[in-house]
């Protein structure tokens, strides 16, 4: 099998500098501006930590209902994150893109759905590449649009 999980090269440098607003840790020199600096809250900046590596994709199907992913939902995918076990990932499995949770079991790594009726997919012996890590789900409620 060829599961590619490259290590993250320089974790510190992968987060772009953002204004430190409402920082909880008050170590060292207190910032006098902190209490005065209010800005428009930017949801995009909140969700998208690394723009160059972030992609939006559309989920099709119901196998991930247990993780709050419904058919038609918008997924925020960060390709710079490491695909650790427990994370919901997009993988190219034999050429098909699919979203599942990555788990490490006794038998080896496998892709797990969060809906009964979808058995785990063991990765041993399959052509599988991690495409990115899903960080957020945008789900429109009925009647919202």
């Amino acid at each position: 099998m060829s599961l590619s999980m490259p290590r993250r090269a320089r974790p510190e440098s992968s987060v772009p500098p953002l204004p430190l607003l409402g920082c909880r840790v008050r170590a060292g020199f207190p910032s006098p501006a902190d209490d005065h600096l209010d800005t428009e809250l930017d949801l995009h900046a909140h969700v998208v930590k690394r723009p160059s590596a972030t992609y939006f994709v559309r989920a099709e199907g119901d196998s991930m209902r247990g993780d709050g992913i419904h058919h038609g939902d918008l997924l925020v995918v960060d390709r710079s994150l490491e695909p650790r076990p427990g994370r919901v990932v997009i993988v190219a499995l034999e050429g098909e893109l699919t979203v599942k949770r990555l788990e490490q079991r006794e038998t080896g790594p496998c892709l797990v759905a969060s809906h009964p009726g979808f058995p785990p997919i063991p990765l041993a012996g399959r052509d599988c590449r991690v495409w990115g890590v899903v960080t957020h789900v945008v789900h429109a409620l009925p009647g919202a649009r």
């Binding site: 992609y55 939006f56 994709v57 559309r58 989920a59 099709e60 199907g61 119901d62 196998s63 991930m64 992913i69 058919h71 939902d73 918008l74 997924l75 997009i90 098909e96 893109l97 699919t98 979203v99």
Partner: peptide
Amino acid sequence: RYTTRWDELLRVHA
């Protein structure tokens, strides 16, 4: 146009 159009996003099997 996967990265510039809302109605043409990449589709993944869930």
